[in-house]
Amino acid sequence: MEEFEPKIVAFCCHFCAYSAADLAGSMRLQYAPNIRIVEMPCSGTIDHRVLLKALEDGADGVFVAGCMEGDCHFLKGNYRAKRRVSHVKDLLRAIGLEPERLEMYNLSAAMGPRFAEIANEMTARVKGLGPSPFRKQTGGDA
């Protein structure tokens, strides 16, 4: 049987995580190819609905990556993102889906290696959890 390759959606802040991902690329760092990055103007723009929808539509894992605490380009967006992620984790718990499929990370634009590490860490975690029960049965790549 083919090994399970999770699909992970990463909502990345333009000012940090997205640039860090860029840097990881420039640095030719190897990291799990399971990550699909969505660029956001700020992690604080993340919406409960978007997180839920990503999971409902079959993402095996989702994470939000914002700036280091205290360093948000919009001052407090990353704190807001953290609370929302935490709330959606509660919702997942309530509906019976592993809350570990969702996570919040903080990093700066200079942390290319850290981005690679997060990507690997999240991929390993989701592999451990197995495929999402919402995964489309039709197969194929998303």
Binding site: H48, R49, L52, L55, E56, L91, A94, I95, G96, L97
Partner: peptide
Amino acid sequence: EKETEVMATALRMKRQLE
């Protein structure tokens, strides 16, 4: 509107899981 969609989605997911 937002809370309504969140609730509907969460419950829809819950039922799907069940």
